[in-house]
Simulated assay, not measured.
Amino acid sequence: MRAARLSRGGLWLLCCGLLALLAASGVAAFGFGAARIPVSHVFAIVADALGLGSGTRNWTPAERNIVMELRVPRVLLGAAAGAGLAAVGAVLQVLTRNPLADPYLFGVSAGAGLGAVVVILYAGSLAGPLTLPGAAFLGALLAMALVFAAARGRQGAPTSERLILTGVAVAFVLHAATNFLITTSLDRGADAVMFWMMGGLGAARWSSVPVPLALSCAGIVWLMLRAASVNALAFGDDTARTLGIDPVRLRAEMFVVTALMTGAIVAMSGGIGFVGLVMPHIVRLLAGGDLRRLLPLSGLFGALFLVWIDVLARSAFAPREIPLGVVTAAIGGAFFLWLMRRRREP
């Protein structure tokens, strides 16, 4: 099945349309949850917060607190996590020439999760506001360093195949270490860790949003600036060298940037799977495999997807909330099976 070709003008038009849809979706999502808030009240509260209010206040103080203090940070974190994970997945799939590559394949998410779990279980209230994301950053970077060190062959530079296989092995080891810490912990924090490992945005607050939001946006911009060079790697290292690109250096740079992005997202939202795997495949059906088109569209589709999946997770069985990773795994896994069946050769 051939992907549709988008002109440059069509790409910009689609991106602008998706941005507008994301903004409208975010505002609409503020009203959903255990306490339903009318859409008219949501729009009035947001307009008043932006200084665009008409002066007539038809909402209660409780509704304003729910929207501005709980749901706005939650939607912002969901959009940042969806965009960041989808962009990272798109880069890794092109970088490694593996359609199954995503942030979880190389042990990055497992390393970030291990660092965060150590802080949650053993630092507790002594941890400062930056301790959790800092531990996740460190865990992600250490996991990536371990993958690179273990994947080195006799010639020194690790190949894409060795990186993938080593990443899978490292991820299993780190997941085992994380599960060991949880099962041997006698602290009540183990229950919170289990929910956090399945993914969720319930802990989003204004103090926790800036780091993942800033790193996701800055990381996507950086990846887009390097998209043309990464495209060259899709044709092999030898081809990249003829174009003046150092494959080893570029691959290391990309892995460090994606590790930082993944670490920031995992620290605040836990393990949310399948977003980085499925979203790039959906976008390829529309725009092809050029990373310069794939990156912005994957980010926007990923942000939209996670914002509405979070609405489903917190509204379907309200007031009980479904772990976000459970919903993304169910929907993403089913879609991926359908996609593979559709592409199956006769």
Rank of each mutant, 00 (worst) to 15 (best):
R2E: 07
G10C: 11
C15D: 08
G17L: 14
L22F: 06
A23K: 00
A29F: 02
F30P: 02
G31L: 00
G31Y: 02
A34Q: 09
A35M: 15
P38G: 01
V39Q: 05
S40Y: 07
D48T: 08
G55T: 06
G55D: 04
W59C: 06
W59L: 04
P61R: 08
A62R: 14
N65P: 08
N65V: 15
V72T: 03
L76K: 00
L77H: 04
G78T: 01
A80P: 09
A87T: 04
G89N: 12
P99G: 08
P103S: 12
P103L: 10
F106I: 15
G111Y: 01
G111S: 07
G113V: 03
L114V: 09
L114D: 07
G115M: 01
G115I: 00
A116G: 05
A116Q: 00
V118D: 00
V118N: 01
I120R: 03
A123G: 12
A127R: 03
P129K: 07
L130E: 02
P133W: 10
G134P: 01
A135M: 11
F137K: 05
L141A: 08
L141V: 13
L141C: 04
A143Y: 07
R152A: 15
R154Y: 05
L163W: 08
T166P: 04
G167N: 05
V168Y: 07
F172N: 10
F172M: 13
F180S: 01
I182D: 02
S185H: 10
D187Q: 06
G189M: 06
A190M: 14
A190P: 10
A192F: 14
W196G: 00
G199I: 00
G200W: 04
P210W: 00
V211S: 01
V211F: 01
I220A: 04
M224N: 11
A227Q: 09
A228Q: 14
A234H: 10
F235H: 12
T239C: 11
V248S: 14
A252I: 11
T258S: 15
T258W: 14
A264V: 06
I265L: 11
V266G: 08
G270P: 01
L277I: 03
R284C: 13
R284S: 13
A287Y: 10
A287V: 12
D290P: 08
P296V: 00
S298K: 03
L312Y: 07
A313V: 08
R314V: 15
E321N: 13
P323V: 15
L324C: 09
V326H: 03
A330I: 11
M340L: 14
R342S: 11
R344Q: 04
